[in-house]
Design a protein around this nucleic acid. Sequence first.
DNA 1: TGTCATATTGACTAAATAGTCGATTTGACC
DNA 2: GGTCAAATCGACTATTTAGTCAATATGACA
Lengths: 207, 207
Amino acid sequence: MAKVDLARRAEIGREKREKTRALILDAGTMLMAERPREAVTIDAVVEAAGVAKGTFYYHFQSIDELAAAVGEKLGESFDAVLGDARRALEDPLKRLSFAFTKFLEKAISDANWARLVVQSSQSRGEYARGVRTNLKADIAQAIVQERVSIRDAELAVDIVMGIWLQVTRGILDRGTRPEVTQQTVESVLRALGASRSDQENAWKKWS
Amino acid sequence: MAKVDLARRAEIGREKREKTRALILDAGTMLMAERPREAVTIDAVVEAAGVAKGTFYYHFQSIDELAAAVGEKLGESFDAVLGDARRALEDPLKRLSFAFTKFLEKAISDANWARLVVQSSQSRGEYARGVRTNLKADIAQAIVQERVSIRDAELAVDIVMGIWLQVTRGILDRGTRPEVTQQTVESVLRALGASRSDQENAWKKWS
DNA sequence: TGTCATATTGACTAAATAGTCGATTTGACC
DNA sequence: GGTCAAATCGACTATTTAGTCAATATGACA
């Protein structure tokens, strides 16, 4: 007859649930960093996570759902990497340079993150949407302000993202040197056709 | 007791062999254009090729061997796309612009080729080595000639390849417009830090 | 300590995939 | 038409993977 607090019960469950879910999510993140999601099996995930197969299905319906969760977490990491400094920058080219620099620095310091970024870039949309959207907004603004000579925002986004992804791959494959980040950003600004002064300014302290 | 010409027999076999091998190779090429090789199964290949499974193993030891053959064929297609015009160009920046233009045009006219290029770019080395090697040679020469401001050839290669691959993806995902090719090449030259006159010259007729 | 909603387990079936191999077909040549 | 080496076939076994579910464990709380 005990009066059981069902709401409390559910909450307890949710906490325990979150721990295991995080275990699976971490394992999935690791595996999806090192191979395409199509090659990530549920068996591999549960073994890496150290849980039973049934537990996987208790938390996720499929590998696709896990992949979506991994993608969402990656998306959040982008915001985390940028902090709130990004929003404070009014200049679109400074915002772009700032984000680009932060992403490269993150890739240098966290190879697994870099690997996940590169792998995720293959699969349609998903995670990249957020990055792409922000990037496009910055570039569109720069175009309106006539700060860049390139006219096609969509093309400009591809160019910037292409450089980002491939340089990230290069860092993974061949390591890096201290100047690479700055040189890459300079190259991005040149690619967009930024003015010489913008090329120098954008790199200067984001403050 | 007929005197059978064994050498002739073998030759006949080789011809028949080549036909079936090509069938399998084409099927593999198609499948590897639309998904990562890790997701291409032997069953899928033999079904697409219309041959029995045993026949696959008669021609290839594994999917990896098939993938290598596909990669080799792709590598040859690069040479074919360029023709021998490339060798005739002495100017490294013109060579680069020429090849870049041809590759983009090919991607526009042959979506399957573009898909295969993009998919192949994920897997380590293999096909890309040839492209990368040529590209690096051109860029190194341009650096020596002080035609570009960028100093790090390896970084420059990543930048050019990144733009190439991502713009190719863009063409696949969002189609293209006539000016995209030219604008992209201009952007690549700017990214490398080519002089204004080189930016204009390199685009002009390759003759 | 017993209760019970929640979470976890792992054995199980079904399906997909890899790889093998003896039987059969093919086709140029005699 | 018969021969035979090469090529092809497809049924077969073994292994991997997906997905299910009844049984069990967990742990806060009465």
